[in-house]
């Protein structure tokens, strides 16, 4: 995959993998980040899917190369191939399903044991839109970010306004997940792929925490010559400008 780096010009490649139990919304999180869309009934991912998204962070352009993996346990044996060289991982759980956090924890453990030792891991509690109005939340969040995103045109109001489906009671307290994340040294966010809440923050904080110099050194060594971090003017469309949301770091924890 060394050659793949050459396909993007003047941007820093960040390999990122999404892991987590089936149907917690991994693909939806990526879809929201990559094309700012949401599909209510997405087909389950079979095998894995690959997506890319460029984003700007300060004077640098990062190019996320995202492997979105299948969640079902049966596909577990394929996962190492995708996280082996990853510089970042997003481990997703569903805030309405307690068991999904356990699965997330086991993924974190596996990553810490077997993945690249410098990997940046973020824990994302998805589907927070289902519980935002419920009282169960101990420290309910106030982020409302989808409006701030630069290219919001693709998200239809209908999608955003769609009522949350039935089983919307919070099963994982925010504090509990936060405490675990702090203890394990992870970034932590509660997100909603449906409303867009927390998604850009998630990828922004990962971008900040990535040891970029390290990546630059390693890609240069790999033969792909790219002047690191040169701000290019060619990334006008479709890119996420991470700085746009930087003024409001909000609940972002230990970075």
């Amino acid at each position: 995959m060394a050659d793949a780096a050459a396909s993007a010009d003047k941007s820093i490649q960040v390999k990122l993998v999404l892991l987590g139990e089936a149907a917690v919304g991994k693909s939806s999180v990526v879809l929201r980040f990559v094309s700012n869309e949401f599909q209510a009934n997405k087909e389950p991912t079979i095998g894995a899917a690959f997506l890319t998204q460029k984003c700007r962070l300060e004077d640098r352009v990062l190019r996320y190369e995202i492997w979105d993996t299948a969640g079902q346990e049966r596909f577990h044996s394929l996962a190492p191939m995708y996280y082996r060289n990853a510089q970042a991982a997003v481990v997703v759980y569903d805030v309405t399903k307690a068991a999904s956090l356990d699965k997330a924890k086991s993924w974190v453990k596996e990553l810490q044991r077997q993945a690249n030792p410098h990997i940046v891991i973020a824990l994302a509690g998805n589907k927070v839109d289902l519980v935002n109005n419920a009282a169960a939340s101990s420290s309910s969040t106030t982020e409302e970010t989808s409006e701030d995103e630069p290219d919001d045109a693709t998200a239809t109001p209908a999608e955003l306004a769609q009522a949350a489906s039935g089983d919307g009671l919070r099963a994982v307290a925010r504090d509990e997940a936060q405490a675990y994340a702090t203890e394990a040294g992870l970034l932590f966010f509660e997100t909603s792929a449906k409303t867009g809440e927390g998604i850009v923050e998630l990828f922004t904080e990962i971008a900040k925490k990535i040891p970029i110099e390290h990546i630059l050194a390693s890609t240069r060594g790999g033969g792909a010559n790219r002047p690191g971090g040169a701000a290019s003017g060619s990334n006008a469309q479709g890119n996420v400008n991470l700085d746009a949301n930087n003024q409001t770091p909000k609940n972002a924890c230990n970075c």
């Binding site: 089936a22 149907a23 599909q39 209510a40 009934n41 997405k42 087909e43 389950p44």
Partner: peptide, 9 residues
């Protein structure tokens, strides 16, 4: 049940 609505949606 989880995947029913996600097949040929």
């Amino acid at each position: 049940k989880r995947d029913l609505g996600r097949t040929f949606p």
